[in-house]
Amino acid sequence: MQAPRIIPADLTRGSFFDLLQDEDRSLSNIQVSEEDVSQQRIEHPMLDHVSFEKVRFTASRFERLDLTDSIFTNCDFSNGQFEKASWLRVEFKDCKLVGIDLNEAALNNVTFDHCQLDLAMLCDMRFKTVTFTNCRLNGTSFMNNRLASVKFNECDLDQVAFNDTALKNIDLSTCKFERLELDAAAARGMIVNSSQAAYLAAALIGIKVKP
């Protein structure tokens, strides 16, 4: 896992809306805090070497959002639409991403730490070296994805839909869920604990496991 190549203390304080003054819709080397960027519509914004804290992006639509070497702390992306995004070396800490739409995005070296991603749309995506730690993804759609070095550490995955996503070598043993949506082909090679294995045996092939 490669961390963002950024030192927040070296950044200049600024505003997200400085991006609107740039012809290329680009923003770099700034720190933004406690700003409301809700319900904005911007095509292909590009942010690199930025740090955002307590910024609200709720219900905004940024198609093809490029993020590089960026950190987001206590930010709210709820119901945002960010299809076809491209994120490289990005960290999300204590962020709210409920109902976010990231369909067809590509994530490389991205971490989600103590984030809420309930009901998120994470489909038709490419994940490379992505980690979810202590995150909640209840009801999230995680379908038709390509996964490489993806980790779920102590996450709540109840009712996540993993259809058409190969989970070989994906370790869910520290996570909790009552029900998952997946097929036997997708589950082949997935790593689970003994109680999860009993549930999956019953759900996928009808085997009943005695306690």
Results as ranks from 00 to 15, higher is better:
Asp164Pro: 03
Ala201Trp: 10
Val90Met: 02
Leu157Ala: 03
Arg126Trp: 00
Asn163Ala: 13
Asp10Cys: 00
Leu65Gly: 04
Phe52Ile: 01
Val110Gly: 00
Asn109Ser: 12
Ser149Cys: 10
Lys210Gln: 10
Asp22Leu: 05
Thr131Tyr: 04
Pro211Cys: 01
Pro4Ser: 09
Thr140Phe: 03
Phe72Arg: 06
Asp171Pro: 09
Lys208Phe: 04
Met1Trp: 09
Gln116Ile: 12
Arg25Gln: 11
Met125Ala: 10
Asn74Gln: 10
Asn138Asp: 02
Asn29Leu: 04
Thr111Asp: 06
Phe142Met: 09
Lys96Asp: 13
Gly139Thr: 03
Phe57Ile: 07
Asn193Lys: 10
Gln39Asn: 11
Leu119Glu: 12
Ala201Ser: 11
Phe82Pro: 02
Val110His: 00
Phe142Tyr: 10
Phe112Asn: 03
Lys54Gly: 04
Arg56Gly: 01
Phe77Thr: 11
Asp164Phe: 11
Leu20Trp: 06
Thr58Phe: 00
Glu34Trp: 00
Phe152Trp: 07
Arg136Lys: 08
Ala120Arg: 05
Thr12Ser: 12
Ser38Thr: 11
Thr174Gln: 06
Asp164Glu: 15
Pro8Met: 09
Leu147Gly: 06
Cys155Lys: 05
Cys175His: 03
Ala3Pro: 02
Leu97Asp: 02
Gln31Ile: 13
Asn79Tyr: 15
Ser28Lys: 10
Asp18His: 11
Lys128His: 11
Asp69Gly: 03
Ser195Trp: 00
Gly139Tyr: 05
Val110Cys: 00
Asp66Val: 15
Val32Asp: 01
Asn134Phe: 07
Arg146Thr: 15
Phe52Arg: 07
Thr58Ala: 02
Phe77Trp: 12
Leu102Ser: 02
Ser78Cys: 13
Phe112Arg: 02
Ala184Asn: 10
Ala187Arg: 07
Asp66Met: 15
Asp10Lys: 00
Ala186Asp: 12
Thr129Pro: 03
Ala203Tyr: 05
Asn163Val: 14
Arg41Asp: 12
Thr174Asn: 05
Phe16Leu: 15
Glu154Tyr: 13
Asn153Glu: 15
Cys123Tyr: 05
Ser195Lys: 00
Ile205Cys: 13
Glu53His: 08
Asn144Ser: 14
Phe17Glu: 06
Ala203Asn: 07
Ala161Leu: 10
Glu178His: 01
Arg56Asn: 13
Ser28Ile: 00
Val55Tyr: 09
Gly99Met: 08
Ala161Asn: 14
Lys54Tyr: 12
Asn193Cys: 09
Leu107Cys: 01
Thr131His: 08
Leu47Thr: 03
Asn169Arg: 01
Lys176Val: 15
Pro211Gly: 02
Asp164Ile: 03
Phe92Asp: 02
